[in-house]
Design a protein around this nucleic acid. Structure first.
Lengths: 248, 248
DNA sequence: CGTACCGTTGAGGTGAGTCAAAGTAAGTGG
DNA sequence: CCACTTACTTTGACTCACCTCAACGGTACG
């Protein structure tokens, strides 16, 4: 393999653009739904309580899901029984599209992290929508292409990075979805819908190790956890630490 | 996260179906190429020597690449300078489609493992093809959806599995592409176009660790390496070992 | 005021990384 | 055809981040 100049790839850009694409589709889809009564009939709005599963790993896909509200965790259970969380989806996001277009059983389960409302678009309806709005083909191609590519997952699952760094990267990614907008001072407050266990599945570590990493971050004065509330006094410093350590 | 019954997912089914889709596209694309002279003019056939790069990480995509012959390794260099190989593509396979449809710089580089010939389909041509053959939309959606999903990559990169097991899984996946058909006795012979270093990037380990794992497999009587030639006396036993250990 | 779950802390073991060195194969040029 | 270079491979010794197991503290809720 020849030499190569690798620029930093920040998780946030990935996530942001993916969300953007999905939100766009959501708008288009809703437009389509309102457009014809027949379409509206084909679309089910479903409510899920916290903890419920929207679909299960290994079950055949029946359509695609569009989140109206709430948050969903996508996770895969491997052969050893380890759970691997790889995405947190929020309002406007689409889930279940990979299995749908792959025409393969779901490779992951989708569990509601909070109460949520989901719009289920059954197969025949997706087909109709794609016919009526060819632009959707392009959008879905883009969505699949950007979804869970190397850079995003590698910041969190790359075991060359110590757990502490993977945790920082996770926070930097999740802050876009969960940071409270109304911070008086510079302190950034993030309210995660994730337990320690959920965090651990996302960064490929045990929950005990996550607890220890959290303690380290507190000792460093970088991040303070209280339950599922996270306080970051200086977000720039945290970003710097993430980049610094990457360069070592 | 609720209880869940997880069936075994074998790498081979994944890889096989993806290859199949790609080969199908290649046929369709070639048909299209012959169909109109204008199309043919827009398509460049390029030769690459072993070791050359077809495209580089972080460079903007210019089209998609369809392998006519030879083998290509897709690899990503992370922020720490670690190389991460995640796919070996062969004749009929498509590469570079993720960046192309994602409209993002390449997240990986493609390096020729052996001398190879590649058909480069520039953007305008892909657009034309998609218009002329709408079925291609569906094929590409399927290709992207199946490509590098959780199961495939997790068998190789999941650090809950020891290196030896990840190596076995890699062999079981690569045998579909590289096994010699003409084995007299039951011994399966695989000729990999991969150095130890390349293997190590694919299973998230160091090359020294790979060497030790290879030695262990030899001591177990499961697999014999001689350079890049791999001999597997009893492929069924190897598969069993892979499945057994998964269940522990 | 239990019960159940979540979270923290400690002790101990180990798989795999790191560093260093020697061995082997594959070209290259004289 | 043989030195010589270069790249690939193996082995050993050492270290450490993380896992495992186990116990205990905290908090929510009926």
């Amino acid at each position: 393999m020849a030499e190569l100049n690798v620029n930093k790839i920040n998780g946030q850009t990935c996530c942001a653009s993916t969300s953007c694409t999905m939100a766009k589709f959501a708008r288009i889809a809703n437009f389509a739904l309102d457009d014809q009564m027949s379409y509206r009939c084909g679309c089910d709005f479903l409510s899920y309580d916290k903890g419920e599963n929207i679909f299960l790993q290994n079950s055949p896909p029946t359509g695609i899901y569009c989140l109206q509200s709430g948050h969903v965790m996508l996770w895969h259970r491997d052969e050893l029984g380890n759970d691997i969380g790889f995405r947190v989806a929020g309002a406007g996001d689409i889930v279940g599209h990979r299995a749908f277009f792959g025409e393969d059983p779901h490779a992951a389960s989708a569990a509601a992290l909070t109460n949520c409302v989901v719009c289920h678009l059954p197969k025949h309806m997706v087909t109709k929508l794609l016919e009526k709005y060819p632009i959707l083909n392009k959008l879905f191609l883009r969505l699949l292409a950007l979804d869970r590519g190397p850079p995003d997952s590698l910041l969190l699952r790359n075991t060359n990075l110590p757990v502490k760094m993977r945790l920082i990267n996770l926070l930097l990614i999740l802050k876009h979805s969960f940071a409270k907008k109304d911070c008086e001072d510079d302190t950034m407050v993030i309210v995660l819908p994730l337990y320690r266990k959920d965090i651990s599945t996302m960064i490929a570590a045990r929950h005990e190790t996550v607890a220890r990493a959290i303690k380290e971050l507190k000792d460093d004065g970088l991040v303070y956890f209280r339950g599922r509330t996270v306080m970051i006094p200086d977000i720039n410093r945290l970003t710097e630490v993430a980049l610094e350590d990457d360069e070592v």
